[in-house]
Computed example of a mutant assay.
Amino acid sequence: MAKIMSLAVVGTIAIILLLVIAEQANAISIDADCYGPCTNNCQQLCISKGYTGWTCAAFRTGSGCCCKPRKKQIFK
């Protein structure tokens, strides 16, 4: 009985690790700040916030207006 419980625990941990690894593989790293959905005024929005570039990034739920490069923080 203890062997079956041990196998169940090891199996559960293995499944959780596989899910975490799969999520990391699907993650996209964007060095930008994203503001709402991507529309025709995305470029103007980014320029008004002090950024020099912009892009429309695709996410699972749609696309977002992402301004880049990210603003440099004075205080961390």
Rank of each mutant, 00 (worst) to 15 (best):
L19S: 05
C56E: 01
A27E: 08
T55K: 15
K71E: 10
A8Q: 12
K49T: 11
C56M: 02
A14E: 02
I16K: 03
I74M: 07
G62P: 07
F75R: 01
A57H: 14
R60G: 15
F59P: 00
G62K: 11
Y35K: 10
Q24W: 10
I15Q: 08
F59V: 14
T61R: 14
C66M: 03
G36S: 08
S29M: 09
T52Q: 08
Y35V: 07
C42I: 01
K49G: 02
L17V: 10
P37Y: 15
K49M: 13
T52E: 05
G64L: 15
Y51G: 03
S6G: 11
V9R: 01
F75C: 00
T52M: 00
V20Y: 08
S6R: 15
M5H: 14
Q73M: 09
C42N: 03
Q44H: 13
C34S: 08
N41E: 12
I13L: 15
I21F: 01
D31N: 03
N40L: 12
A25N: 11
V10H: 06
I74R: 12
A22G: 03
V20D: 04
P37W: 10
T12E: 09
C34F: 05
D33V: 04
F75V: 07
C42F: 01
K72D: 13
L18A: 10
N26F: 14
A32Q: 06
K71D: 06
K3R: 10
T12C: 09
F75P: 09
M1S: 11
I13F: 12
K71N: 04
I21K: 06
M1R: 13
Y51I: 00
Y51W: 03
T61P: 00
T39K: 14
G62I: 05
M1F: 13
V9T: 04
V10N: 05
R70K: 07
C42H: 01
Q73G: 00
L17N: 03
C65Y: 05
A22Y: 13
L19D: 05
K68A: 08
Q43L: 05
S29E: 11
I30C: 01
K76Y: 11
G53K: 11
G62T: 03
C34T: 10
K72C: 00
E23C: 00
I74H: 08
D33K: 05
L7G: 12
I4H: 08
L19N: 09
C46D: 07
C34M: 01
K76D: 07
